[in-house]
Design a protein around this nucleic acid. Structure first.
Lengths: 207, 207
DNA sequence: TCTCCTTTCGTCACCTTGTGTCAGTCACCG
DNA sequence: CGGTGACTGACACAAGGTGACGAAAGGAGA
């Protein structure tokens, strides 16, 4: 399709992005002050100055408002070159995750941090996020199987373990009030290293 | 509290269990023939012969109907002795998972298999399941921190990796049409072994 | 500038999930 | 046998989410 990345863009699309961002920021504020569950979609729409119906044209669900870069991440994962083995596949997923975190920090900054904190605090939202990741994990497993000749279990495990490290890093980081945006990539690096140590077959019992 | 396990039980509790099981089996049938989304709670209630309101007295949500042993599993995890280190904690979670699978197979048999297949096929339900697991994972991390003196990231990782292995095993097993109930414990054992091999620091790149 | 097409938006109507409430029923216990 | 507490059905209601239709506004061409 037409891929005019970083172009001045349409006036329509520009206004759409503005409205989208305005909804996110307004919702974020309402969620913090009133709580996620007690804030209705109608509250958000009214505060932004749009109709309830229009809100759902921007976001499929109330939870989606907080899943800022999720769609981009999914697309990047789907487009990634996984190489021809499980280890190259794992490395590819980790690389994309790293780039994703850096881009989110660069492009969205505090907005990203705030959404992550709210996600960690709100089971309904983390469940929605997981549903996304689960869908891509199944698709990833299929692609790994096609290119890396291995069994389904190993392929699924590689994907799940990679996602587990990413989720854990974000989770622990977002629950730490003193952590800054700059700390996140380092936390994720530690998560990858530690996950390898924790399941080390030498340290773990053989059976 | 009163723990009359395996006792003849009250007439009321007996009827309650019967109704609950009837709801599960009826819903399972409707979900398979009509699809999860297109089946309304009212359809299920009507088919069982209870009111819509009563349905919600048995199950908090429509998804909960498929989460048969989840509550027992959570309780078992919460009550487990995690030892005094991350490795004993990991071992404890794995033991409980194994016992849980065996008990589900023994007590529920095909019902369990059918629910797992539907869960794997239905994003909304796996999201609900994840929400449960996420809640217990946070509580587990706290308990590991209290007993094993380590950092938050390592503790969270241990829990997430353990859950990832369990989920992957069930996921892959439930998507295999030729797999039988007896295959599940073996699949889970392979998942634990493989997860240790896949993240082996010797095979993986140091950085 | 005028016209035509496309996208977007607001309004209205509707369905489904989930909760609160109230009154009636029934098993159990004294 | 009468009281207590749990379970149930019926009703009302809030909130999330979808479909349909007409109006308004942006964008392209004459």
């Amino acid at each position: 399709m037409n891929e005019n990345r970083n172009a001045p863009a349409d006036l329509r699309t520009r206004r759409r992005n503005e409205t989208s961002r305005e909804v996110i920021e307004t919702a974020l504020e309402l969620f913090r002050t009133t709580g996620f569950a007690r804030t209705t979609v109608d509250d958000i729409a009214r505060a932004v100055g749009i109709s309830e119906r229009t809100f759902f044209r921007y976001f499929r669900t109330k939870e989606d408002v907080l899943l800022v870069g999720a769609e981009d991440f999914d697309r990047a994962v789907e487009a990634a070159d996984l190489g021809d083995s499980l280890s190259t596949g794992l490395r590819a997923i980790e690389l994309i995750s790293t780039e994703h975190l850096e881009r989110m920090i660069r492009d969205h900054g505090d907005l990203f941090a705030q959404t992550q904190r709210l996600i960690a605090a709100e089971p309904a939202v983390s469940a929605a996020l997981f549903a996304r990741q689960h869908a891509t994990s199944v698709s990833l497993r299929r692609r790994l199987l096609a290119s890396a000749d291995t069994d389904e279990l190993a392929a699924q495990l590689v994907v799940e373990l990679a996602y587990a490290a990413l989720r854990s890093a974000i989770e622990v980081w977002s629950r730490d009030p003193s952590a800054t945006l700059a700390d996140l990539p380092a936390t994720y690096r530690r998560a990858r290293e530690q996950s390898r140590v924790l399941l080390d077959p030498v340290a773990g019992a053989p059976s």
